[in-house]
Write a protein that binds this DNA or RNA. Sequence first.
DNA 1: TTGAAAGCGCTAACAG
DNA 2: CTGTTAGCGCTTTCAA
Lengths: 345, 345
Amino acid sequence: MEPSARPRRVTIVDVARHAGVSTTAVSKVLRNAYGASPEMQTKVRRAMAELGYRPHAGARGLRGQTYTIGVMLPDIRNPFFPEVLDGITRSLEDTEYQVLLGPGGNGEKAEARVTEAMVDRGMDGLVLVAPVSARAHLERVASMVPTVVVGRHGSSPVYDTVVDDDVEGASLVVGHLAALGHRRIAHIEHHETDPTRLAEMPNARRADGYRQAMRAHGLEEWIDVVSTSYTQEGGYRGAGELLSRPRRPTAVFAGADVVAMGVLEALAEAGLSVPGDISVSGYDNTTFAAFRPVSLTSVDQAGTEIGGHAARLLLERIADRNRRSVQVSLSPTLVPRRSTARPPE
Amino acid sequence: MEPSARPRRVTIVDVARHAGVSTTAVSKVLRNAYGASPEMQTKVRRAMAELGYRPHAGARGLRGQTYTIGVMLPDIRNPFFPEVLDGITRSLEDTEYQVLLGPGGNGEKAEARVTEAMVDRGMDGLVLVAPVSARAHLERVASMVPTVVVGRHGSSPVYDTVVDDDVEGASLVVGHLAALGHRRIAHIEHHETDPTRLAEMPNARRADGYRQAMRAHGLEEWIDVVSTSYTQEGGYRGAGELLSRPRRPTAVFAGADVVAMGVLEALAEAGLSVPGDISVSGYDNTTFAAFRPVSLTSVDQAGTEIGGHAARLLLERIADRNRRSVQVSLSPTLVPRRSTARPPE
DNA sequence: TTGAAAGCGCTAACAG
DNA sequence: CTGTTAGCGCTTTCAA
C-alpha cells in the first residue's frame, strides 16, 4: 500500500480502446441507450469488467445526469427520519441512483446551504424532509431540480408532497384518551410564528387536529394548549406550566415523543405517577417509545411508506419534469402503551 | 412559478463577460488563488454577486476539487453517530467544504456501494464511521481519496484513525460496579467471527477490556461473557441466558445502550427490579439513556470531539497526501445513573 | 448501427 | 498580474 501509488482512473477511452470500439459506443452501453448491437453490448461490458471501469459521476453530470438523489434531513437525531430514509433507499437500491444525505441542521440558513450545495453538485432529484425554509425557497429549488417535499402540508405546482395526516393523528390520540374517560386533555405544541409556515407545518396541524377532536368529543371547554417547542426541554417547561393550572389536566398529549420525555421528567419530579395520576401520549412512535421503561403511547407515521412514495414520485418527476404535481397523504395509526390509562377517580 | 421555466445556469463565462475579464481571472478569484489584484477581486466578486453565480461542483471536480467531504455512517439510527457528525460539520462549516452523508447500511456490500459512489463523485475526502468492511477494502478506498476511519482500532499507513478507548471504557464500567460491591458482573458482547475485524472492532475491545478489568479487580472467577449482538433483541436474548445461570450475576454490563434496553425488557418480564435486584450498565451514552424513565448508567464517548479530530485530520491529509498516518485515541467517561446501585444483600 | 467531433463548466499550464 | 489555450470524462449531435 504505497501512499504515493495513485493510478490514473480508468476512463471511457480506456474501455473503448480495450474493446476496440468508439467512446460513443461505450457511452451508449453505459446508458442502455438505443443503438448498440448485442455483440457490441457484450464486447463493451466485458471490457468494462476487465478494466474495473467505473463511470465518473461528475463528468457525466456535465452533459447528462449524475445519478445522484439528494435527501435533506433536518435533524439526524429525530428517530423518525431514518424510517423515511429507509423507504427511499429501499425503493432506489435497484436503480442506478445513489442516495446522499445532506444535514439540514434545523434552520433556514443551514437548509439553504445544503440545498444549494445539492443543486451545485448536479443532483438529479431532491427529497426535502420536513424543511423549515420559506415556501419561496422550496419553489426556487424545485424549479431547478425535480423535488419532493416530505412532511409539509400545502401543495405547490412545482414540487410533489408526501405527508402523513397530522390532523387525523391528533384525533386518534384525543379519541383514545376520551375513550379512557379523560376530559381534561391538554396539548403541548411547537410554537410557530411564521404565518406561511403556520399552515404547512405538521406541528400546527397536530394542534389544529387536537382542537377539532376536542370539539368533536364535546370537550371544547377543556381545550388547553401550551406553546413551547418540540424538544425535551419544551416538554419539561410545558408540563411545568400545566401542573400550575388551578385544575390540572388528567392527560397530556405531547406533539412529539421527545416532548413526552420532558413531560415524564417533570411529572416524576413533581411526584406524580404515569399513568396513575396523569396519562401521557407522544407522537412519532420513535424507537425509544417502545422501550420497556418508557412504554409510551404514540402515533405511528409509516415512515417507510412515506419514503417509498417520495422516491417513486421523484423518479416519475425526473422522467417527466412537466407532469402535474401530486400530493400523497398517508394515515397514521395509534400505538397504545402503558403511559395511558383511565383517569384517577 | 412556471414548471417549464428552466433558465440556463450562470457560468464562469457569464461572470467573466459581465466583469469584463477573462475566465481565468474569475477562476482565480473563486479559488482565492495567487495572481489577482485587489481591484480584479472586487470587480469579479461584484459580478458574481450580481449574477447570482454558483460554481458547478461537478465541473470543478473534473480538474480540481469538488469541495465535498463524504461521511459514511453505518447506521443512522445509532444515536451516537449524530454526535460524530456534529463534530465534523462544525469543524467544516467555516470552510468551503460541504458534508454529504452516505447511508452505509451495515454490511460489506452496502458499504462498498457507498464508498465507491463517493469516489465516483470525486469527493475530496472521506470519513468512514465504524465501517465493517475488510481492511483491504478500506485501504483500497484510502489509496484513491484521503480517508479518515473513525471507531475502528488498528492503524494503517494509508488512512488516519480516530477512536475512543474502548478498553478503558469497559474498565470504567467494571470499576464502577466493583466499587459498588458487585462481584458477579456479566458482559453481553457483539458476536464477531471475522479474525481481522476481531482485533479492530470496538465491540471486541470492550469485551477484552471487560476481561482485563475483571482480572485487575481479582474477579476472574466471575468472568461471564454472553455473545449475542449489539441490538435490543441481542440484549433480550443475552439476559435470558444469564438469568438461567445457576448463580445469576448481580450486574450486567451491556456492550451498547440498545443492548441494555433489551436487558431491561427481559428483567422486567422476569419480575426483577433494576437496580434493586440487578444493576445494568450500557455503553455510548445515547440520548435515551438520559431519559428519566430509563436513566441508564453508560459510557460517554465524546462523539463531538471524535468528529472534530476526524475533520481536522482529513483536512491535513487533503493538504498533504503523503504525510504519515496519525492515530488519535480519546478517553471515555462514565456517566452513573439510577440503573446501577449496590448489589442486594 | 457505428464513430468523429463538439462541448458541458471549470482549472492548469503557459505566454505575454 | 493577466489572458489564451488545452484538456478533465463524459454525452450528444450529426455524418457515414
